[in-house]
Amino acid sequence: MGELRARLGGHLHLLRAQARSQMSYRVSFAIDLVSNVGATALDVLTVFVLYGVSSVIGGFRLGESLVMVGIAQCGFTLADLAVGNIERIRLYVRTGLMDAVLIRPLGPLGQLLAMDLPLRKLSRVLLAIVVLVVALAHAGIDWTPARVLLAIAAPIGGAVFFGAIFVGTASVAFWWIESGELGNAFTYGGRDFTSYPVTVFDGWFRSLFAYGLGFAFVAYQPTLALLGRPDPLGLPAWAGWAAPLVCLPVAFAAALIWRTGIRHYRSTGS
């Protein structure tokens, strides 16, 4: 325990140091803050536009869909705030900067994340929370203590889930240095997938993303449980209640990929 606290302390000091060095770039910080809200606002607006065309999509009305959007955005923006920086691993692996990370007595993941304090991403998280709260209030949910708990657990589980996807896909860089934007297909693609009812999609694409990778359990299934609706695709009701737990095996798998990746790190010649 003391060991863990000492390491956490090390990471905190790293973070604080980064905050200090960021102070020299105040204007760009303000611009980032604004542009970050813009991206999330646009995602939410897209849903409104779609419902302007058709009042029911995949069997769900706007109010119901917005609950999914809220959970998905909360989960994603929280994960992005916490571990989105992991994408810089590509640069670190390609240039060999990872050497300097690996000779420090701290976990490499924590160090990479502490390289940058993404405060600018906070604005997005706040917006996502507002969207979720408003959506929950207007969806006509029959509130019980269990539903309140689920409404809190779902975005947190979503955050862990997306965080794992961020780490897992970024680890590909250890094997494949020019992996480029491949990871984004799963992170941003996954976020967009989760924002809509799974019923909208079909075929192998639905099987893979919804159940193979588990994206259906981030927002879709919990929303069904919150609304008290049966799953048109036939999963039992408890699937919705247990959905936030799906993030655990996903996080475990991501940690395994990350650890294996570190051992495949090959540095650069010099």
Partner: peptide, 20 residues
């Protein structure tokens, strides 16, 4: 290759290392 923090003065890098 440097192992110090690019934007920090040496003195602060050393202080940081004490904690790490």
């Amino acid at each position: 290759r440097s192992q110090l923090w690019w934007d920090l003065p040496l003195r602060e890098s050393f202080a940081l290392l004490r904690h790490i």
